[in-house]
């Protein structure tokens, strides 16, 4: 188990996705897009620091292991994690958060899926990696590879807006 914090039950309670979505909406409406992105980056750098430390110590194998364990504990997730010599590709076929928010008829914050880039990039940067996200709104492709200044930056337009 590569997750830094563990519970006594095997998967989380899906209704907590309601609170995650509501937190994003609260920050967006009160403080704007830049504050929400800073919150995501701070989470990636601070809250997820133990994960970054593990990635830095154990390399791409730790990245793949983390995402397998992470999605195994998220109810309803359908995800494939492919570990290559230069990158880890996470194919999210069914995003558990978007699926549950839709099931609960919740208004999803349109930029909901950008969290995966901003948090993932902050986690990666501390470990010498970089993250890229394509797709969203229920399914996406996330790639983690060694940081390289020659790589083009993340295009936020490549991340779809979430809809109900």
């Amino acid at each position: 188990m590569s997750l830094p914090y563990t519970d006594t039950k095997p998967v989380g309670a899906a209704d907590f996705y309601f609170a995650i979505n509501a937190t994003f909406r609260f920050l967006l409406e009160k403080f704007g897009q830049e504050a929400l992105r800073r919150y995501w980056t701070d989470l990636g750098e601070s809250y997820f620091a133990p994960v970054s430390a593990d990635w830095r110590a154990r390399g791409l194998h730790a990245v793949a292991e983390y995402w397998r364990d992470f999605f195994k504990a998220e109810p309803g997730a359908q995800v494939e994690v492919e570990e290559g010599s230069n990158e880890v590709v996470v194919r999210v076929n069914t995003c558990p958060a978007i699926a549950h928010l839709r099931h609960g008829a919740r208004d999803i914050v349109p930029c909901f899926c950008q969290q995966c880039y901003f948090i993932g990039e902050a986690m990666s940067a501390r470990a010498g990696f970089t993250a890229r996200v394509e797709g969203g709104n229920g399914s996406c492709r996330q790639v983690f590879r060694r940081a390289d200044p020659a790589l083009p930056p993340q295009e936020l337009s490549a991340i779809k807006e979430a809809t109900c």
Partner: peptide
Amino acid sequence: MLGCYDFCAHY
């Protein structure tokens, strides 16, 4: 991504 498994910790 923020998950629900460790929700109370990031909450």
